[in-house]
Design a binder for these strands. Structure first.
Lengths: 341, 341
DNA sequence: TTGAAAGCGCTAACAT
DNA sequence: ATGTTAGCGCTTTCAA
């Protein structure tokens, strides 16, 4: 087996508790002793066994990160930010994928509960009640969902949806479609609601299509349905769906944005790489990952259960243009200010 | 604190070791007793503490997955496949990001070593010697690198590069560019070498540009350099760079594939979403993730250190077309067969 | 400032 | 088939 605290103690002529203190409470150890212990530890290649430490302290210094789908480009930047941020604070991160399945999700929470100090539940698909149940087994921070009394990090998708709809209405669109996302998604509900309200306020109507899986093929598959509505502008639950639609539309000779405008959500990297580049609502996913980690780690200190809402930003690119009711000569750029209002 | 083995023992009127056996060696327990214990365990919500178990068995049932960059779309499908596969075998996965930094990489291996039964080192940036050193601290399986005597999973990128070059030469290109990837990448060296050999064999010449970070902006930034070579076809280290170049080329009015053909590597999801769609060498990253997990978990059983090479496939899309030396009327489709040879 | 001793939750001989 | 016991590597009272 590997080198333990006992080996270091023997080699440096002190008791194991002194070695222990050297690592977990250095200020309680004579500087000279400490130096000596540290030196022999280094020499022997000693590294504290976190599991053994956890057994007695009750703190594993691990956190769990559960996401709906690692391969969905929305998540990797968040995972990366959370992992890097956590590591900086000396925490390791278990990452797990639920494949959009609420049952897998609950199983996963339970399976990780004992091994972590807390879990980041990202875009959970389970019900609020389930989440309430889970939080009794392990500290939880929820990302992309708001539940009373539960620490959460959300992006202000409602505001994002409003900006997007205003942008479209300002461009002269009166008939909009919302391509909705997966069942169980809080974000989806928020966007749909906010978009509906904003559309009505702008004298436009909004047809809701869905639910859909949040993947590009679902966007492509919805093409017929979108065209059937006669709408001139589409807001999609996420960029993947928007891009799938964008491509499929153009494949059928429907020009974007000349005939139909398309707006996505998230601002994943691909959105700037497709043609036309995608107008979308940017979500600060990396910041969300960091904020969620902070929240989880602070949860012990005070009992506070904050709820952080991060700003979203409409990024106007080339997939949106004037609609049938556009003021003469209006361009996307001209109405940008209006949307920002 | 949570419910322990002791609580279950007390509640079901047996000794703790019987409870322990019920979970870790059920066949050694009387079926009736087992049922009773299981029932009370369920009732109390007992779940074995893996850390405590690990302390004595020496097996954590955790594995570490270290990648160069979680946000690089090459990795998420691999991470996802590995995590799902591992979980199915009752292993949890620590995911960590090195940010392409070899120093972070070694630190990470050491930090995780004690907490896992083994580590999957994906696309390592550290040197072979470093890796040799690391493997003495913890079982390692390396992905995307071949080192003598070390268990590894690689994709046959050499064959992929040859197919790509043959495809281009077959299309009538004689002056090629290889846009190389990051320093320290085994994959990069393999592709460059194989492409060079294949080019020479086909009577073409290959100019190597780089190294570059494996991101789309690097591809875009290389545009001038590419044009300066006068080449009519480009092979890039990965799709991200290829797409960056593709876009930048078109932004300057250089038509793809009419004036320049572009080939990527990896077949990330975005490659099918850009226009023109990207011809690329598909890497079986998900299969690689699963294979690596299997290899790691088998390492204990026998001492075998296998090396698995997974097949790559040239996916011909619309970013490649006839070059200056093309047989009259040649199209990408027509030469596909040749490339496959 | 350091040592001694107990014990975190669990498994693995060994005994019964 | 079940109970007893020792102890994995570490932290943390309590004494000295």
């Amino acid at each position: 087996m590997a080198v333990t605290i006992r080996d270091v103690a023997k080699a440096s002529g002190v008791h194991i508790s002194t070695v222990s203190r050297t690592f977990s409470a250095p200020h309680l150890v004579n500087p000279e002793t400490r130096t000596r212990v540290l030196a022999t530890a280094e020499e022997l290649g000693y590294r504290p066994n976190r599991a053994a430490r956890a057994l007695i302290t009750g703190r594993t210094h691990n956190i769990g990160l559960i996401v709906a789908d690692i391969a969905n480009p929305f998540f990797p930047p968040m995972i990366k930010a959370a992992e890097t941020h956590a590591r900086r604070r000396d925490y390791h991160v278990f990452v797990a994928d639920t494949d959009e399945d609420p049952v897998v999700e609950t199983d996963l929470v339970r399976a990780l509960a004992k091994q972590v100090d807390g879990i980041l539940l990202c875009s959970p698909r389970m019900s609020d009640d389930q989440i309430e149940l889970m939080r009794r087994e392990v500290p939880l921070v929820v990302v992309n969902r708001l539940i009373d009394g539960l620490p959460a990090v959300v992006m202000d998708v409602g505001a994002g949806a409003r900006s997007a709809v205003r942008h479209l209405v300002g461009l002269g669109h009166r008939h909009l479609v919302y391509l909705s996302g997966p069942r169980g998604s809080w974000t989806n509900r928020e966007i749909r609601r906010a978009a509906g309200v904003a559309a009505r306020a702008g004298g436009a109507d909004l047809t809701v299509l869905g639910p859909h899986q949040p993947v590009s093929s679902a966007g492509a598959d919805a093409t017929e349905a979108v065209l059937a509505t006669g709408a001139t502008a589409v807001l999609a639950y996420n960029d993947l769906m928007a891009i799938g639609l964008l491509q499929s539309l153009q494949d059928r000779g429907v020009a974007v944005p000349e005939q139909i405008s398309v707006v996505g959500f998230d601002d994943i990297a691909t959105s700037a790489l497709v043609r036309p580049t995608l107008t979308t609502v940017a979500n600060p996913t990396a910041a969300a990952g960091r904020a969620a980690v902070d929240m989880l780690l602070q949860q012990g200190d005070d009992g506070a259960t904050g709820q952080v809402t991060l700003r979203t930003d409409l990024v106007i690119r080339n997939s949106t243009g004037p609609g049938p009711y556009a003021p003469a000569g209006a361009t996307a750029a001209q109405v940008a200010a209006y949307a920002k209002e």
